[in-house]
Simulated scan of single mutants.
Amino acid sequence: MSALTSGSVVFQNLRKTFGAFTAIHDLSLTIEPGTLVTLLGPSGCGKTTTLRMLAGLEHPTSGRILIGGKDVTMLPANERDVSMVFQSYALFPHMTSLDNVAYGLESSGLKKKEARERAEEGLKLVGLGGFGQRLPAELSGGQQQRVAVARALVLEPQVLLLDEPLSNLDARLRRRVRTEIRELQQRLGFTAVYVTHDQDEALAVSDRIIVMKDGHIAQEGTPRDLYEAPASAFIADFMGEANVVACEVISVDGEDATIRIGALEHRVPSRNARKGPAKLAVRPNSITLEPAAEAAFSGTITHTAYLGDHVEYEVETANGPLFVVDPAVERPLAANTSVSIGFKGRGIAIIND
C-alpha cells in the first residue's frame, strides 16, 4: 500500500448540546494533512463527542466541519471519507482476520478477489501477514487491534480516527502498539485524529496535542510545548505530575525571569510574566535534594519510597508540600531529614492562571 491521500480537518465554531447541557463550546481547530493530532483530556471533557461529530455519528448543534476542504457537517457517516478504529476492536468473531479486513471493501462494491488481495496487503502492512485465516479469538489483544487498524486503512480514508485504541491492552502491549501506530502513520503519511485520556500515550504518538476541559480547548501545542510550558495549573498537573507552588517574580529580562522561593533565586523562561506574586509549576524530577540544616529554600522529608530505578520523596516546606522523584537510588534520604531544595534547568515554568 502506497502513501494514502491525507486530508485536512477543520472545525469552525463547533457547538454541541444535549438538552440543557453544552458538551462542546464554540470549538475551532485546524488539523493539517499528514499529521497525527491527539484530543486529550479527562472523562467528560468533550474529546469523544468531538471525534463522534467528525465521524458523523453525532451532528453539531451549530458550526461546521470540513474534511479535505469539503463541508461534511450534515453528511451521514458512510458519506465521509474517514475510517474509525474503536477501543472495542468491533471485529466479527465468526469471521477470519482476512474476512474482517475485506468486509468494508466488499460492502463498498469491490469485487471479492480484489477485496481479499487488498485485505492481505493490509494485514502485511500491520505485521500480520500469514494470520489471515485466524479467528479473532485466536489472536492476542494487540493482534486484534492491528486487524482493526488494517480494516480501517484498506479503505484508504482521508482521515483515520482512533477512539481510545489501546485502552483494552496491558501496559507492555500499549507501548508496543502505540509505537506501531505512530510508525505506520509516519510511513504512510495519513491524517489521524487520536482520542485518549492517557498522557504518556499522547506524548508518545502526537505531532500536536489538544488538551480539552469542560468542552473547551485548554491548551494546544507540541508534546514538548505542553509538558515544558503549561499555560495553567490544570495543564501542568494533567500533563504529568507537577508541583504548583507560590513564588515571587523579582525581575523580568526579555525571555528570562528571576523568581524567588524562600531565599532561593532561580532563572526561568519569562512567558510574559510580570513582577510580583506568581505560581510556578515544577516537575518532580526537576527538584534536587541535599541534606542540610540551613538553606535558601529548605524542607523536611516526610516520606521516602524506593521504587527500584528511582526514589520518591514527599517534602514539607514553608511554601507547601513537594513531591520529588530522584534517580539517585544509591543514596536515599530517610524520613525526617532536613534538606536543601534546588531546581534543575528544565521542567520549571511560570504559569499564568
Rank of each mutant, 00 (worst) to 15 (best):
I24L: 08
V249T: 06
L264I: 04
G132P: 05
L322C: 11
A236F: 03
Q87N: 13
S251C: 00
R52I: 03
A77G: 12
R116T: 13
G262I: 02
G19M: 15
E164M: 06
L4N: 03
L289S: 03
E294K: 11
N272I: 01
E120W: 06
E156D: 10
P60I: 03
N319K: 14
D26F: 11
D256I: 12
G109S: 04
Y227G: 00
I235R: 03
Q143C: 08
A90V: 15
S8I: 15
Q87F: 06
V249Y: 04
S97D: 08
R80A: 00
G34P: 06
V37R: 13
D256S: 11
N78F: 06
S206T: 12
L91T: 10
V211C: 04
L153Y: 10
Q145H: 13
G7F: 13
V82W: 07
A295E: 11
A152H: 06
D353R: 07
R151C: 11
H216A: 01
V329L: 15
R174F: 08
G69L: 09
N336P: 00
N243G: 03
G109H: 06
N243T: 02
R267E: 00
E117R: 15
E201K: 10
P157M: 15
F190D: 02
A115Y: 08
E32A: 14
